[in-house]
């Protein structure tokens, strides 16, 4: 049982790492009072997912999925290109989200003069 787990860890350590990273992002998002850091947490969380996708695509001994014009693709061991495409799209989406999030934070800062959530709560409770 334990051996099996170690075995999985040894061969699939990438996944484990991604999920640890995801956890860090999530924790940061929940526990940090600073809004900007929260957003960084969200970003970390998303990045972990992107890495996860890249890891999924990997084929042992595979190369980057760039096919030379003269060879037939069947002979080449390549990483699956599809998740890479997905990750590219997701990165774009993530950047857009970060931009909107930062814009909102700028506005909150302009209105309340703070970036900290606990201070924000106090300010709003006073009103």
């Amino acid at each position: 049982m334990i051996e099996g787990a170690i075995d999985i860890l040894a061969t699939r350590y990438a996944y484990a790492l991604m999920f640890v990273l995801m956890g860090i992002g999530m924790y940061m998002m929940i526990a940090n009072e600073n809004l900007v850091k929260k957003l960084i947490g969200v970003n970390l969380f998303q990045t972990a997912i992107f890495l996860f996708f890249v890891a999924v695509a990997y084929v042992e001994g595979g190369k980057a999925p760039i096919v030379p014009a003269d060879s037939s693709p069947g002979e080449l061991a390549m990483a699956s290109p599809l998740p890479h495409v997905i990750v590219l799209t997701a990165i774009v989406v993530g950047i857009a989200l970060t931009a909107v999030g930062l814009a909102l934070i700028v506005r909150i800062y302009a209105e309340y003069g703070t970036l900290r959530e606990d201070t924000l709560r106090e300010v709003r409770a006073d009103e």
Partner: peptide, 14 residues
């Protein structure tokens, strides 16, 4: 509304 939007943004993204 900005605070509400940010809250939604973070949770929605998750």
């Amino acid at each position: 509304s900005a605070v509400a939007a940010l809250k939604y943004l973070i949770l929605g993204t998750v």
